[in-house]
Amino acid sequence: MAAKRDTYTPDSLLTVAARVFNERGYDGTSMEHLSQAAGISKSSIYHHVRGKEELLRRAISRALDELFAVLEEPTAREGRAVDRLEYVVRRTVDVLVAELPYVTLLLRVRGNTDTERWAMRRRREFDQRVAELLRRAAEEGDLRRDLDERLATRLLFGMINSIVEWYRPGHGDRVDGGQLADAVVLTAFAGLRR
């Protein structure tokens, strides 16, 4: 009988790692936990990555790359700032839904490793770019001027980021990603618009 071949790819291993990190926490996950969850040996994992932190960085990068890509989309770069901001908010929810395990992991990092500190800097950079859009929309007269843009950005993303704690598509959650994005935009912009 032939030996079972390692059928894991870097992407499928990343999927398992994100799930296990989210279940156990990054610090509470060992390479043994990852190998058991993947059903492969630790040496097979090391064939794909140098270690646990590389898996963390790849998983977080997947979320960050998708979020930053939203800021480069034509609708996020052209037109009135309020329309661009609304588009970015809607697309951020889309990314969260499409990449739920990876965004969840990104939102749970606390700065305990070099990778986590890097991720937190990137998250702050993303937030600052959105805050700048909010500021411009207020300057253009489309949003309330009595809100501090950094505070409004934190509140806006607090609402969006909380979705990872309760949204479970395919497990009885009857709201799809589009409905979720519509609800976030309606809730946020009803209070932000002049």
Rank of each mutant, 00 (worst) to 15 (best):
Met1Gly: 15
Ala2Arg: 12
Lys4Leu: 15
Tyr8Gln: 13
Tyr8Cys: 11
Thr9Val: 14
Thr15His: 11
Val20Asn: 13
Asn22Thr: 04
Gly28Asn: 06
Ser30Arg: 01
Ser35Tyr: 06
Gly39Lys: 09
Ile40Asn: 00
Lys42Asn: 10
Lys42Ala: 12
Ser44Asn: 05
His48Thr: 15
Glu53Cys: 09
Leu56Tyr: 14
Leu56Asp: 04
Ile60Leu: 07
Asp65Lys: 14
Asp65Pro: 06
Ala69Arg: 04
Val70Asn: 05
Val70Leu: 09
Val70Cys: 03
Thr75Ala: 09
Ala76Met: 00
Glu78Pro: 03
Val82Cys: 00
Val82His: 01
Arg84Glu: 08
Leu85Ile: 09
Glu86Ile: 07
Val93Arg: 01
Val93Leu: 03
Asp94His: 04
Asp94Glu: 03
Val95Ala: 05
Leu96Pro: 08
Ala98Val: 11
Glu99Phe: 01
Pro101Gln: 06
Leu107Thr: 13
Val109Cys: 13
Arg110Met: 13
Asp114Glu: 15
Arg117Ile: 15
Arg123Ile: 15
Arg124His: 02
Arg124Pro: 01
Arg124Met: 14
Gln128Ala: 13
Ala131Pro: 09
Glu132Tyr: 07
Leu133Asn: 06
Leu134Ser: 03
Arg135Ser: 00
Ala137Asn: 06
Ala138Asp: 01
Glu140Ile: 00
Gly141Arg: 05
Gly141Asp: 09
Arg145Trp: 09
Asp146Pro: 05
Asp148Leu: 14
Glu149Val: 08
Leu151Cys: 01
Thr153Glu: 05
Arg154Asn: 04
Ser162Thr: 11
Ile163His: 03
Pro169Phe: 14
His171Glu: 03
His171Gln: 03
Ala181Pro: 03
Asp182Thr: 13
Thr187Cys: 15
Arg193Ser: 10
Arg193Lys: 02
